[in-house]
Design a binder for these strands. Sequence first.
DNA 1: GGTGATTTGTACTTGCTGGTTCAATTTAGT
DNA 2: ACTAAATTGAACCAGCAAGTACAAATCACC
Lengths: 215, 215
Amino acid sequence: MTTSAGRTASRGRIDKRQAILDAAFIVFARRGYAQACVQEIAEEAGVAKPTVYNHLNDKETLFRHALTAVTDAVLAENLSVVERLRNPGPDLRATLEDVAYRLIRMCCTKRSRSLRWLTYAQVARFPDLIDLVLSRTSDQLCEALADRLARLSLSGHLRACDPATAAEQLLALITGPMEGRSRLGTRTASTAEMHAVATVAVDTFLRAYGAPENR
Amino acid sequence: MTTSAGRTASRGRIDKRQAILDAAFIVFARRGYAQACVQEIAEEAGVAKPTVYNHLNDKETLFRHALTAVTDAVLAENLSVVERLRNPGPDLRATLEDVAYRLIRMCCTKRSRSLRWLTYAQVARFPDLIDLVLSRTSDQLCEALADRLARLSLSGHLRACDPATAAEQLLALITGPMEGRSRLGTRTASTAEMHAVATVAVDTFLRAYGAPENR
DNA sequence: GGTGATTTGTACTTGCTGGTTCAATTTAGT
DNA sequence: ACTAAATTGAACCAGCAAGTACAAATCACC
């Protein structure tokens, strides 16, 4: 932790910290926490092993920093997708299908899958990471979606309902089937399959929550 | 469960194989695969370390056998719950809520959670286990549920629909929210919370798939 | 009681990996 | 060019766990 963010005393060469964190996530995602050895991370970052320990104290902080960084990135992407519901076009169903499809694509990203997998896999060793990752992804995403659904309900596009549970269920209808179809990320789903899941999820959602004219 | 099943040539003492497998699952669930040392498994089984290697060749086969055994047990329990839909009473909604609630309770079992966690956590090391566990739990459960829903559809209790997707979505509505609420099994959900999730899941399911009089 | 197979305890080898040390080298800024 | 910081490569230590060897003890069965 020589110079963290302030950046007055510049590094001897370029800033290798980011390269190390990126490499750490890649290697952790490839091997898992226990199997990932620091040597491999150093090689992936194009750096010597002691340099890794210069920037991050030990393997655990390396893991935490790498994971939180990716978590923030994934959250930002997800939120930007949900934000599309702020201006629903005349065809609500089409807009929802578009959002659902984009969310599915996000969840199938290598980065997103690795993030879910790593947090789930290390729940025994780092139980607090579950809370951090889950609150910054699922919870905030659900919250944002609930906001949009509430407005849609007020404007008469959806029937009166509890927006929080509606959001929770819509997300479940989207991510649940995809998790099974993709074998927890082992199999890569086709575009057609993702479209199909999105369509059918929105269909049941609108049957349950749509205003009579959208049902 | 001293002597397992057929077992003509009885072991020197009682059959310790089952005790070892049970202990293995317990310890693997407690520590994770990498952190679980064979010594601890042996102690948990009340057995010496070399005895473990007498019955199971190495740590990997130990893991595989323990996991498949638990998989089969969990599947059997889940199937027995879905079987309750074979005789739906006059109140379909109540029956569905009962089944949903029981499934939720199953999913929150320590054994069931450990099974999901272990398979997910070791996907990098044993990718084939994902297929084995998923096909014997999610897939077969979904299949059985689809069978029951198809009959309900034919008998006019549900609207005409594709039973496979209906089952997939009902399971998603049940398990998805619970996975988030329980923080991937970190937090133990209250009975009230489980009932609430079951009720609201069945409600949206019936809004989307119920026959007009059940909607 | 005898016999053969199984179990047990202990100790050992082996291999791997996290983390450190250190002298030599390279780099950035002046 | 000079200095101070950062980087590098290599070696090194410590700990931990998988798997094995082996002699002593124990059990099932006759």
